[in-house]
Every structure is written in C-alpha cells, then in structure tokens.
C-alpha cells in the first residue's frame, strides 16, 4: 500500500467528480450563452416568400430583413446584380421591378409578391444579347465591369422612358449610376446607339 502507483479513494472521488463537472460545463455554458443571446439579440423572423425573377417563380423562406439584392445574390445565386454601396448611392444594384428601374439594395424582398423582377441575367434572349449589352461591348461602355450590370439595366430603362434627346439629358437620367473607372462617354454612346 505504499507503492508509487497508489491512488486513494479520496483522490479518485475528487478527480472523477472534477472530470464529470468539466464534462458538464460546455453544455451549461452553451445553454447560458443561448439564453443570453435570446435576451440580447432578438431572434430573426422568417417568412415564406413567392417571388418571380426573370420569368421564373421561386418559393423560399427568407428573413424579413432580406433585401432584393441579397435575395438575388445569396438565395437565388444570380450574382450579376452587384452590391456597391448597399445604401442607394451608386446604382450598381439596379434591377427592374414591373419593368421600372429600382434599387434592389433598398427594396425589401418581403414587398415583392405579385411583382416581376428582371435582372441582368434575364435581359438576353438565349445567346442573343440584348441590344444594350451589344452596344456596351461595341462602344466600350465599361472598363472594370463592376457597375456595368446596373448601368445596362438603367440604360435600358432610360431608353424606354425616352430620356435620350441629348447628351445632357442622358447624363441627367443616368446620374444614379456611378462608374469609378469613368467609362461615362462609352455609356452615353451606347445609349445613343440603342436609342436611334
């Protein structure tokens, strides 16, 4: 009873008790964390949503906070629509709702049932580019290309609205789309080409 490997009953109880407590801690901490989280951070609220994008109907379950922009990119994987400022100042997220150009970053997805969304992916007819897409290629309407989907969606609406009587009018009615590369001259030329 005096060898090196002697463990007392007391030692065994202490150690095994401590180990058991240690094993129990993670679950306790986790539930405490979850309780605190529920108290501090309100739970997200999801709603079923039926939305029509590029003539296709989608049924989803989305957080009420979801903007049309995030719905397109994150849920429907239509990443052609770009997130620039996410605050309605740059126009990179421009899409059409019921045929009119709007900012998808300021449109809540929950407001969309009953409306039709068209994005840059829905503009071409199969492999046949929309005339505005072709004009942007031809007139160098872009450099880096990040603002381009928004520019093209806005340009298509600009022509449809008939705001193409002069360069000044085109610039005024395209002022909601910023291009940091400065491809503005090519963009105006593209619009003039399609408007003719």
């Amino acid at each position: 009873m005096n060898g090196k490997n002697y463990y007392s009953r007391r030692f065994f109880l202490k150690t095994s008790g401590a180990l058991a407590a240690l094993a129990a801690i993670p679950a306790t901490v986790k539930s405490f964390y979850m309780d605190a989280k529920r108290l501090i951070i309100p739970p997200r609220q999801k709603q079923p949503l039926i939305v029509k994008v590029n003539k296709q109907t989608h049924k989803l379950d989305v957080d009420t906070r979801t903007t049309l922009l995030d719905l397109l990119r994150e849920d429907l994987h239509l990443t052609g629509t770009k997130k620039g400022c996410d605050h309605g100042q740059c126009g990179a997220c421009t899409v059409h709702v019921n045929g009119e150009r709007v900012l998808s970053c300021l449109t809540l997805a929950a407001t969309l049932p009953g409306k039709e969304v068209t994005t840059i992916e829905g503009l071409a007819d199969g492999d046949q580019l929309h005339p505005m897409q072709a004009a942007f290629l031809e007139c160098d309407g872009f450099q880096c290309g990040y603002c381009t989907p928004g520019q093209i969606m806005s340009a298509v609406a600009c022509v449809k609205e008939g705001h193409t009587k002069s360069v000044a009018e085109i610039k005024e009615f395209m002022s909601g789309n910023l291009c940091r590369c400065g491809a503005y001259n090519g963009i105006v030329a593209s619009i003039q080409k399609v408007a003719k």
Binding site: G88, G91, T94, E100, R101, V102, L103, L106, T107, S154, A157, C158, E161, H163, F173, S175, G176, N177
Partner: peptide, 9 residues
Amino acid sequence: GASPQIRNM
C-alpha cells in the same frame, strides 16, 4: 431630386 431609380420607388 434623387435619381431615376429612387424616384421610381
């Protein structure tokens, strides 16, 4: 005021 996109909304 604003831009055509914002005026549409």
